[in-house]
Design a binder for these strands. Structure first.
Lengths: 140, 140
DNA sequence: TTCATAATAGTGTATATACACTATATTTTC
DNA sequence: GAAAATATAGTGTATATACACTATTATGAA
């Protein structure tokens, strides 16, 4: 009982993205992070201290998407905002707890990356990445 | 100022899926439908009368995802549930309003399909589709 | 220095997605 | 026919995503 692709390219890529998300989340599950949270922590780690707008720009996500995602990370104690009261721009950075979670997650993320590379083949994955980049550029 | 791909394959495909969604939603905007709603209406049209479980299976979406999406379509008067009171299984079908919306949306969706084909090239799009299918099969 | 403009952050609302769980109808089996 | 098993639907909660809008700080110009 083979499942056919949809005729709709949009539905197809959305389903594939969901599958990949599922794979990454499964690998990351031990760390307690979802791939989106891993990505946020990773970027904050590299950019700290960073404000929401710069982070959103770098991650190419809408700023308001990030506002919500960051809230969960703050509640879990993975990040802090070191900006002074009365100032507008935030100063986000990892807490030691956040650093630990990230350290634990990195090798799991690498396993997920390897899984995809092993299953698609290095060259295919490269082509695929290139195509994704091309597609993304359609809406710039 | 070229934007690099992320090293993370998951982030990359999620962004690309978002871009494609944006393209389709823009083409569909005149119809008042989002691509997800278009897809639901399309499937219901082809399968009616249909219950939520069979629809979810066909669309390869979680059933509970659909429950929420269908609510909006019902509120807008695009679909009705013709099942009798006290029964469990639903009997979903388009209303005349839903049919009109779908008819209006189909050519817009075709334009979006064409846009993607024109911009990626027919062969590339075919390869891409095949890759997406392969990726989706990783989580079966 | 004040007032207009920029930058920055956050909320409300909407769609998209799934998992764990509950609730009820339907079917099967003894 | 009653109990067990299965099918079906729905809710609560969580993440992911963006747009329209509001609010407030920071900056630049007159």
């Amino acid at each position: 009982m083979k499942k056919e692709s949809s005729v709709c390219n949009c539905v197809n890529i959305r389903r594939a993205a969901q599958s990949v998300t599922e794979i990454y989340d499964r690998y990351l599950s031990e760390s307690g992070l979802k791939i989106g949270q891993f990505s946020m922590l990773n970027h904050i780690n590299a950019m700290s201290p960073v404000n929401v707008s710069r982070l959103a720009e770098k991650m190419r996500l809408d700023r308001t998407t990030l506002v919500r995602g960051l809230k969960a990370l703050e509640n879990e104690g993975y990040i802090i905002d070191a900006s002074e009261k009365g100032t507008r721009s935030r100063s986000l950075a990892l807490t030691p707890t956040g650093e630990k979670a990230l350290e634990k997650a990195v090798p799991l993320w690498e396993q997920a990356q390897k899984y995809l590379e092993d299953n698609l083949g290095t060259d295919t994955l490269k082509e695929f990445t290139s195509l994704l980049s091309e597609i993304e550029s359609l809406t710039d």
